[in-house]
Write a protein that binds this DNA or RNA. Structure first.
Lengths: 227, 227
DNA sequence: CAATTGTTCGACACTGTTGTTTAATTAAGG
DNA sequence: CCTTAATTAAACAACAGTGTCGAACAATTG
């Protein structure tokens, strides 16, 4: 159970600080996804990264800092993988098809479930997510879509953004726990995107049976001014 | 930061083992939601529950057992709060309006974000969720809805069940981090149910603009036989 | 080749947690 | 009132984790 160890020293290049640093963060990311921030131990990270604990402390002065930097690194990795190198402010082409982004997101999430999980965990417990690069970019896309001619009217952009990102990142967690093969994973990913698409186009309710449904039973004004 | 303590001894009834037990599990639930299973310490639980550590060990022989029993207790609490005392197998009235259940779920989740979070965490990392009472009941309802005349055809029941439950339990986490007042929470809960309803009825895409959309681009057969 | 710089390692002291035990205290129920 | 069970307080060994050192080490320079 504690006998697993990753031999990082492949090839001849024996000493590579940057690679060591990344290896440490990579393992930290995985362990963060599994155990959460409170359950992470530098000892375990070092062991799994095939590195002395002192080395980890050389790169990251304190446990807290290791966690923080790793999360920032995850967010950046996410941003790069999903959005490439679009400009950060993103006030650009609104022609980006939302479907493309969802597919990219979903497939990435399925292949890297740990990253999505650790990032999501941080996002949800962070009261100031505006500082997160990936969140800003993603939210910008959603906002632009909601205001575009391609979307239905009346969508609550914040609710939509959160629900979408949450499902995208957590479906793989479920899917992975119920599939072993790579083919199975692919199928699960397809099922997800298919269902998302179906949902986007048709919803879930049979409209003929729900004509008399009071949509705004005890709703509140749309304008939301909090606090 | 570590100076918080809950005075459990309200009134005169000083000694009540069952209540002590519940108080311990309640605190355990909260801490589980905050720190995850790996981050939970019996010492902290005892301190926050206003109980001696020995007492905790009297009720729960080991840390692991405390966690397990608490999670089971959470699942049961969830089931009771949302579904009342319907029979477990639930092969009963399919006339239960899905909307009613979603509203119950959503409002409960908004008022008890910790419980939902700890349960969800367990569900997603559990490869054998069929043993969870709340999951079984919930999944049964979704299945029956999907096969009923009230739903759209072609819904992937598993995907739908997971995405719905995930959003229901995680939206409150986000909402709570961005609202202080009780009124604000209520508004956030309303926005969620409204948007869910809107989504169920109309989806997100403007159909006129997406007529030529290939729904089954690289889809796979619906029949899913894993492994 | 030697000096310098930055990386990695092994050992150390310290703290906190677990699980166990033992003795003393306190309320509840017959 | 007296027995029983719950609770507390305290101490214990075993252990894991955190930070901090100084020394060993590699690679790049002069």
């Amino acid at each position: 159970m504690a006998t697993d160890e990753i031999k990082r020293k492949t090839g001849k290049g024996t000493r590579d600080p940057q690679k060591t640093r990344e290896a440490i963060m990579e393992v930290t990311g995985k362990l963060l996804a599994r155990d959460g921030p409170e359950g992470l131990s530098v000892s375990q990270v070092a062991q799994l990264a095939g590195v002395n604990r002192g080395t980890a402390y050389h790169h990251f002065p304190t446990r807290e800092q290791l966690i923080d930097e790793t999360i920032a690194w995850v967010s950046n990795t996410l941003r790069l993988e999903v959005f490439g190198d679009e400009p950060e402010d993103g006030s650009l082409e609104p022609r980006n098809k939302p479907r493309e982004i969802i597919e990219k997101l979903a497939s990435f999430a399925m292949e890297n479930p740990e990253l999505g999980r650790v990032w999501l965990r941080e996002l949800l417990s962070n009261s100031q997510p505006a500082s997160d690069p990936f969140w800003n970019m993603y939210k910008g896309h959603v906002d632009r879509f909601v205001e575009s001619e391609f979307s239905q009217p009346g969508i609550d952009s914040e609710v939509h953004a959160i629900t979408l990102i949450v499902t995208v990142f957590l479906w793989p967690v479920w899917a992975r726990a119920h599939t072993q093969s790579a083919a199975g994973r692919k199928r699960m990913a397809s099922r997800f995107t298919d269902e998302m698409l179906r949902l986007s186009l048709h919803g879930t309710l049979n409209k003929e049976k729900f004509q008399a449904l009071d949509v705004s039973s005890d709703s509140v004004p749309d304008a939301v001014i909090d606090e």
